[in-house]
Design a protein around this nucleic acid. Structure first.
Lengths: 192, 192, 192, 192
DNA sequence: AATGAATGAGATTTCATTCAT
DNA sequence: AATGAATGAAATCTCATTCAT
């Protein structure tokens, strides 16, 4: 019966944009509020403090990406189909919302400690993908622990390609590299 | 000759340790000075301000890594030898100075803008390596621009593996993964 | 007749508890409202603002104590009986509602200025008691103005004993000290 | 070799004056700094925060009063002499520095929790005085624990008289009441 | 030369109070 | 009528940097 929250979404959007443009620490509460068209104090009704806002943005985006990957993979049956679908879905997201990717790049290592240990992350989806492919004999059986190494390599190829597009070392859009990234990933996974 | 500056190295070491532990922005001049055992003002004898210190740390480390890679590569003749030597040299450095790697991870995207356009970076070494291998026909001739894509993939495999060790998703030391990382990289590079 | 206000008493009780636990200034409207199970705005239906709530709590308690003392004294005829009855009544109140005593201790000096000059306070009851005893020659006739000094001493004995129980320098309950406090007070009052 | 601290004492003096005049919570850092003629940040070099300043002021004053009492008592041999000397010394201090007394009154109950358990307080001096008098048979032997009750009464008489002067219910200066307070205290102590 | 006290500018956060729903 | 979101104003505190000693 009180008035419905009107500042929450604008604040999230404004924060994301400004964090990406001027870095998290280079962006003050004042700017976020002004950009969102509300008062500074409004932020504190929705998040305990600036850090909580940053963490929430990060974890929500990670959850989104995780769900995106899981949904894309669920629709496919072969390893190649899954890798391609996952890559395509994620690159499509980043083409449409480049800020999200940039934000994650900026904060991932600083926020690594803040991730709840039981939170399922995008990288867990990839690890499961690799494990599942091994079970189904779509790839050679990896030695114990080696599956994580393979997941790391796949994620590395995927991410660093996106970084190269972001920094315009190769021309965008990112989606045009779905196929070569998929093939490189498969090549690594299918190693004897 | 003037006596060597006394506080410079302790300050760099203190800054690196604290930046890694509590983030750059979470570390104040006071703490750096105290940790280095000197006064706050001493820092300003060696760098114009805090930002200059951070930038210098980053760029010096990037130069170190670049030289390390170039020296390692120069001693080898085959593509496989070069990739392996580069990977081994870098992983050895990171095993011995894990803080350096962590620091680079933390600041790389925020400091990307500060890099002088003519500064030769480690990634340029990898790009040259790929280009050179193509010229020597050690790998299939990449389409125009594709060489950067290959470099990105190689760097991604290399970096993400190091990240996995850093976060203890796979056990260290990093050097034990020189061989699988090398083989994965080669597999990607030699793609038909 | 209008239905009775629903939030008033819970708000008073919540405020008292939190003020005592975390100090007046350390307790916000939000906390009071939450603790009372109502909205923040509800407080403003009953008091003009936070300060008015604090003042009302204080003055109401002072009035309660004053009435308590007067009723106790009215039932007795001798000085000793009056002192004992007053002491017993007040200590019984504080044993049953220790928060009230603690609250009064916390705010008394800060709120001293806010007391209306014509408001009859507990200390006035004691002053009257002393004056009355002098008139009835139950104690030696005090010099002009000395009656207040005696009242101060009696109140001091009474209060500081309660403080000692509150801080557990002597064991409670407070009521067990009615007799020694009464005797000490009488000894001071009956001074030659 | 750096410049000597210039703001510390002015800050303490300014804080004391303003706390007494407008209450602790009613006085901002800004006002303290302005009144002391220095910047707000200077305060944080000397105390961790506002609360630490308040606590330090309180505890330092308590230590001063404790030493004052102990010195006064040490010079006397009889119980009466000691009580009178202690009372005279303290009342002289409060006549000369009424702010100190007012400040202690304002904050004592809010800061009670902050006192280190091993800190010797003025009230401990009084308790020792009573205990010592009992040992020397200057007063009747108190029952176990009763010595604290006597100390409470003595302190109550002493303090509440000072409160009455502060609030001008009896005329000052406080020192004029040394004798009646002493006699009242002795009367209570010598109770059969 | 070296220190660390002092500072100015600004950051974050708090809070009583108001107001749209 | 009652809520709790929003606010304005201020409070506390931080911090890189300067400067007197």
């Amino acid at each position: 019966m009180a008035r419905p929250p009107k500042a929450r979404e604008p604040l999230k959007q404004a924060a994301l944009e400004l964090f990406v443009e001027r870095s998290v620490h280079g962006t003050g509460i004042r700017e976020i509020a002004k950009h969102a068209g509300c008062s500074e104090a409004a932020l504190y009704r929705h998040w305990a403090n600036k850090e909580a806002l940053v963490t929430a943005l990060f974890q929500e985006h990670m959850n989104d990406v995780r769900d995106l990957l899981e949904n894309a993979i669920a629709k496919e049956t072969t390893l190649e189909g899954k890798v391609r679908a996952a890559c395509r879905a994620a690159y499509k997201l980043y083409d449409e919302h480049p800020q999200v990717f940039r934000f994650v790049l900026l904060v991932q290592h600083e926020l690594a400690k803040s991730i709840p240990p039981d939170m399922r992350m995008p990288q867990d989806v990839v690890a499961d993908l690799v494990r599942d492919a091994a079970v189904k004999a779509e790839i050679p059986k990896p030695a114990k622990g080696e599956e994580f190494l393979l997941a790391a390599a796949v994620i590395g190829i995927f991410l660093e390609t996106a970084v190269y597009v972001l920094y315009q070392r190769v021309p965008g859009p990112l989606s045009r590299y779905v196929e070569p990234v998929t093939q490189s990933a498969l090549r690594v996974l299918r190693a004897k």
